[in-house]
Design a protein around this nucleic acid. Sequence first.
DNA 1: TAGATTGTTAATCGATTAACAATC
DNA 2: TAGATTGTTAATCGATTAACAATC
Lengths: 218, 218
Amino acid sequence: MINKKSESAVSAAVIKRLPRYFRYLRMLLNENKLRISSNDLAELMGVTASQIRQDLNCFGGFGQQGYGYNVTYLYGKISEILGVNENYQAIIIGAGRLGQALAASPIFTKRGVEVCGLFDISPEVIGKEVDGKKILHIDEVKHFVENNVVDIAVLTLPTPFAEEAVELVQSLGIPGIWNFTSHDMNHIPGCTVQNVHMGDSLMMLCYDIRNLDNNNEV
Amino acid sequence: MINKKSESAVSAAVIKRLPRYFRYLRMLLNENKLRISSNDLAELMGVTASQIRQDLNCFGGFGQQGYGYNVTYLYGKISEILGVNENYQAIIIGAGRLGQALAASPIFTKRGVEVCGLFDISPEVIGKEVDGKKILHIDEVKHFVENNVVDIAVLTLPTPFAEEAVELVQSLGIPGIWNFTSHDMNHIPGCTVQNVHMGDSLMMLCYDIRNLDNNNEV
DNA sequence: TAGATTGTTAATCGATTAACAATC
DNA sequence: TAGATTGTTAATCGATTAACAATC
């Protein structure tokens, strides 16, 4: 059983780093590294050992003085914290190129999430099979959610339909929204949202390129 | 001409917020709002007016006392800062479902970036046209880059090939990497990198769902 | 036991917010 | 001019880093 050390929520700054720990620990496991100190992990990841120890201690003492951290154990704990073993079920709303790409990729299964349905409005894609699942008409989603547990709605439809989709997801009582549109979604009552905002990432890249070697005049 | 106010670089925390300002200002323009105060914008975006004024002042005084900000002018300035008018050229390395989805989406053009080439190794996709551009064999990329200005390499190939791809991009002298693999890319000499890490986003979503209503026992 | 390394407290640093003088 | 709102300095808050006592 995992409990936060206190009643106070763990800060977003810490949560944001957990998936990265998860990735590095998985890598260590693949290399059959069974033990690692905060110092060695810090060097590997390019962060401070202090930060690693502080971060992990938000959730409990996973290490052992004089020894370090057992990689298998720590990986398991972080998986638990991140809900990797919860077998969350996701539906994809908007089965265009992006929705289909995600459905066919290992991104979900690698993290213990299962895609259980795809929905769209376009007759061109409805009925098509992606990764063994048929794309259904969005009108069927209500019936589907009533008969299946759905934890996550992946929004891969065009941005102009984002607001509409949020209302639908809310009305269906799906707790998690994974938002790929460029529509800002914050504070949706009853839902928790992760905004991917790929466009923002591209713009930051452009900023960085432009400012690479002090060439900051126009 | 845009200059940072001092020689010191603007903090990453500020840069990360610029695309969001860009989005909101575009929205205001679409609504024919020609003028906005930091207070009104703050309310709209759910941040403090102080933060907005501080952020903008990293780049210059774009407002006017007693009046506020001219939306058209401010949008132009932020576009300039983010390099929207630089007409950056991107090639997509890995023209699978995700690469094709991005190439066919408006994500690039909306931000003034142009996709000038797609590359892959799979005979199944080579020769195929996406958004009017033919997918070429990766062996042709060197020749292509020698004859075309390329600012950005979009890495949409499977993670196991990420390291190889980085070396290639580096050797070609492409300054910007937009990384969609789950391979961590930091401190690549000569390159600036933006990691999308969609998987991390999905994991944070799972964490949030699991911790929605204090259900933090396993 | 001695050495190593954690867990945790204290110090530092940076980012956010508040306040207000400058000024349109 | 008076009112409004910025640009900017000062105060607060939170996050990161350093230090070290606890302990395996």
